[in-house]
Amino acid sequence: MQRLAVMQTNLIRAALLTATALTVLTGCGQDKPVAAPVTTPAAEAPTRAQELPAPAGVAVSPGGVTTAVDVPSGATESEFGQACHAAKLWMDAQHADPVTLVEPYLHLMQQPQTRDPGNFNMPWAELTAAQQAGVIMAATSASKGECG
């Protein structure tokens, strides 16, 4: 029972952090730029992520990785626990500061061929926005050592 309360507290914290990050990233208004434009050298072809603007409520890194989805997580407690554990195992195997590994991990989870407990064993494109938010929340929690 106590573990459930801790997990719920961690989910609430992660949701608040995600909301705060989205607020900062969007600058609290439509008229404020989110980031400097990405310039691509002429010899380098743009990736599909660079060609298409991110949908409203979605934060995409300059590397094309979705780092936030502005919806509540749709992961069940079991899915979240499995995704968080999978992210922690991957981060531990990298032997680096876990906080720096969130985006690389999310990049891996967003690859079309990746079916892993970290993305609920479904390709990223087939996840709902709420499930994508759950994957991001689990990765962020893993980076902070908050997996149960």
Rank of each mutant, 00 (worst) to 15 (best):
M1N: 10
L4Y: 10
A5T: 13
Q8E: 12
Q8H: 07
T9I: 03
I12R: 07
R13M: 15
A15R: 10
L17K: 04
A19L: 15
A21I: 11
T23E: 12
L25Y: 11
G27I: 10
G29P: 11
Q30L: 13
V34P: 03
P37F: 02
P37R: 05
V38K: 14
T39R: 14
T39K: 11
E44H: 05
P46K: 02
L52T: 15
L52R: 13
A56Q: 14
V58I: 15
P62Y: 02
G63I: 12
G64V: 09
T66I: 15
P72T: 04
A75H: 12
E77C: 03
E77M: 14
S78Q: 15
E79N: 08
Q82H: 04
C84A: 08
H85P: 00
A86Y: 00
K88P: 01
L89V: 15
W90N: 00
D92S: 11
A93Y: 07
D97I: 02
P98V: 07
V102R: 09
P104I: 12
Y105L: 15
L106V: 06
L106Q: 03
M109I: 09
M109D: 00
Q110V: 13
Q113D: 05
Q113G: 01
Q113M: 12
R115L: 04
P117L: 06
F120Q: 01
N121G: 01
M122P: 00
P123Y: 13
W124D: 06
E126H: 08
T128N: 04
A130C: 11
A133R: 08
V135Y: 01
I136D: 03
M137D: 05
A139D: 06
A142Y: 13
A142G: 10
G145F: 14
G145N: 06
E146M: 11
E146R: 11
